[in-house]
Design a protein around this nucleic acid. Structure first.
Length: 661
DNA sequence: CTAGGGTTAG
């Protein structure tokens, strides 16, 4: 038997090297020496039974000791109660004693009881023990299998940091799947939903869907598994599609369903749909996970008013509720409030975790709180016992970089304990662009491309930096390399929700039914803005390096089209909310800011990293020159995948969903 | 009455 709980990749057992033949056999012969349970009245047994059902662990263990000596056994259900009690208290030692007892003197516990023990070891993360029990049990049933599938598949996931492990973990899952089919357990709902869930945790959504589609009977949980699979793998469309199917089949959504539906809305920035789901969430208002998902939905849809309201209304808050708010505030540009929230959280006695600190540092980097950020960063390990990870370093690189302390940023990268990755170097590259540091930019870009040679954003960023510093030949060179490597840039795409429909706008795509009117108005708006001093920021013109030069490529950036469409189609006074697949460019940022003021409309644009709030009507005077340097963002950083943009596009005029249950 | 579903970052 190989070790699973201390496994190193090369020791990770594969099913075939283990006892494949024993797995394939389900034995049926009874155990030769199986004493029967005592029917005689016994004080210890009575005491034991009572203690188990009362969850009185010490008394139960004392009684168990006597039963052991007098060779008396209780019935399986009583033991399972005791094991539940051990699980709840994390009592590993006691659990092991129970295990020993039920196997002592040749007593052969029923399959039911062995399953309970296996599950106990799985939950204690003692996979060796779980595996040994499973391997040696004379008869396995569906429950034994379901338990082990979950155990194996989760085991491979514990060390995601080592990328190559991903293969072996997934490989094990595939082998288990194979064996399950051979043994004929694949018609079981439990086994299937475990498989679906495990495949989806490995990102193998299509396998999950296949397993699901092959099922003839489905219950609510298996629907939830598959909806959750897509929601968690950022395919909100498919999740909502499945949700509609589920409702057509007559199932009613429960907490888990709603959580996944909310997560789908979150991913797609569907605020209006999210609000409808909210109505159904009300009856589960005590459900913490669901409330957290609701909070996140409002944050990610850019409606901090709703998020704040829900947050103050929540009676129970955990680390995730607080972290969600901190990150939400930080991403939406409310950096001070995010930090206040963090202070409030710690003084209320909630311990921050890894992710909370990411949010705090993110807030600092956005607001330029260099000292504050550094002090949180330096104290996180001492005060909260959290070792800085890649994400924390990333925030610090951004913080120092934006503040112009590029050398310190580089030094930090060179000395950081986790290996810097693409994101780290790309962050540095972004900072180089802001401060026009050519040499460092070239260095950072090289590191990015070493790690990810297909990163179109980096080529574009690099060529833009060369253009900005008038190094035309170098810019040309980068374009050539990019072309040579056949790297294509993802087309910019923006989405806006109007009347429960999503409208998508893609650069150079004219398929929207109102595109002529939109373009006409866009030109008008640009004209009017120019009259009050708007000057398009041409440093972004060369983004579309491989296309033909249009007369004015900036004019047609997808978010501009979406904003204008929002002005046309949404009722006056309604906030225009847009989601983008790429980072917003400086020119569009300026355009949105000025237009929001001129038209007196609030505009919120969500890009893959941040949310940009533009207030309308506050300030009628336009401060064009000041704005040029304000908050310059860079397009071209590719976060979401290209396929998705195109799929979404094809669905742009399709109705979304109706709630009618 | 032992097994399967939902929340924060990247």
């Amino acid at each position: 038997m190989k070790s699973l709980s201390n496994y190193k990749p090369k020791f990770l057992p594969t099913i075939s090297t283990l006892t494949l033949h024993s797995l394939l056999h389900i034995h049926h012969q009874p155990h030769p020496n199986t004493p029967t349970q005592s029917n005689l009245p016994n004080t210890h047994l009575n005491e034991f039974t009572a203690a188990c059902y009362n969850r009185d662990l010490p008394t139960a263990m004392k009684a168990l000791n006597f039963m052991q000596k007098t060779q008396i056994w209780a019935d399986s259900v009583t033991y399972s109660e005791l094991i539940k009690c051990c699980l709840a208290r994390g009592a590993v030692r006691e659990g092991k004693l129970v295990h020993k007892h039920v196997f002592s003197s040749g007593y052969q516990p029923k399959t039911f009881l062995v399953n309970t023990l296996i599950n106990m070891y799985v939950k204690f993360n003692l996979l060796d023990d779980a595996w040994k029990l499973f391997d040696e049990m004379p008869e396995r049933n569906v429950v034994s299998w379901t338990t082990m599938i979950a155990a194996f598949a989760n085991a491979g996931m514990r060390d995601e940091a080592l990328g190559f492990l991903a293969c072996s973990g997934l490989g094990i899952l595939r082998q288990i799947h194979c064996i399950i089919t051979k043994v004929g357990l694949d018609s079981d709902v439990f086994v299937r939903s475990a498989l679906i869930d495990k495949y989806s945790k490995w990102g193998e959504v299509s396998n999950a869907l296949t397993v699901f589609n092959e099922m003839e009977t489905r219950d609510l949980i298996v629907w939830n598994s598959v909806i959750g699979a897509f929601a968690q793998n950022s395919d909100g469309d498919e999740a909502l599609e499945l949700f509609k199917r589920m409702k057509r089949c007559g199932f009613l959504a429960d907490q888990a369903t709603l959580t996944s539906v909310l997560r789908a809305c979150t991913g797609l920035a569907l605020l209006e749909l999210g609000r409808q789901v909210h109505v159904h969430v009300l009856k589960y208002h005590r459900d913490l996970i669901l409330s957290n998902a609701l909070l996140d939905m409002y944050c990610k849809c850019g409606s901090m008013e709703d998020a704040r309201f829900e947050f103050t209304r929540m009676v129970n808050k955990d680390v995730i509720s607080w972290s969600t708010m901190i990150i939400g505030l930080a991403q939406n540009g409310f950096s001070h409030e995010a930090i206040d929230m963090f202070e409030e959280m710690t003084s209320s006695g909630t311990r921050p975790n890894y992710i909370t600190i990411v949010g705090v540092l993110f807030a600092c980097s956005h607001a330029g709180f260099v000292d504050k950020g550094q002090s949180y960063f330096q104290s996180m390990e001492k005060v909260y016992g959290i070792k800085p990870g890649r994400e924390h370093y990333g925030c610090m690189v951004d913080l120092l970089g934006r503040a112009g302390k590029l050398n310190e940023a580089v030094e930090l990268i060179h000395n950081m304990e986790p290996e810097p990755d693409v994101v780290t170097w790309r962050t540095l590259l972004g900072a180089c662009r802001i401060h026009r540091n050519m040499d460092l930019a070239a260095y950072a870009a090289k590191r990015v491309l070493d790690l990810d040679p297909d990163d179109a954003g980096t080529y574009i960023l690099l060529s833009n930096i060369y253009v900005n510093t008038h190094r035309w030949e170098d810019a040309e060179q980068v374009r050539k390399i990019m072309k040579g490597n056949n790297v294509r840039k993802e087309p910019g795409c923006s989405w806006i929700e109007v009347d429960k429909q999503i409208h998508a706008f893609v650069l150079r795509d004219n398929s929207h039914p109102d595109i002529d009117e939109i373009t006409r108005r866009l030109i008008q708006y640009v004209q009017r803005l120019r009259e009050v001093g708007y000057v398009p920021d041409t440093s972004f013109v060369l983004h579309d390096v491989e296309g033909e030069q249009m007369e004015d490529p900036l004019l047609y950036h997808s978010e501009k089209l979406a904003i204008v469409y929002g002005l046309m189609a949404l009722t006056k006074g309604k906030t225009i909310r847009i989601r983008k697949n790429l980072r917003i460019c400086g020119d569009c940022h300026l355009f949105a800011k000025l237009l929001a003021q001129m038209e007196g409309r609030n505009i919120v644009i969500r890009d893959p990293i941040r949310y940009h709030h533009f207030q309308g009507g506050f300030n009628a005077s336009l401060l064009v020159n000041g704005l040029m340097v304000d908050h310059i963002e860079q397009t071209g950083v590719m976060i979401e995948n290209q396929q998705k943009a195109l799929t979404d596009l094809s669905k742009k005029v399709e109705g979304i969903i109706c709630f009618s249950d």
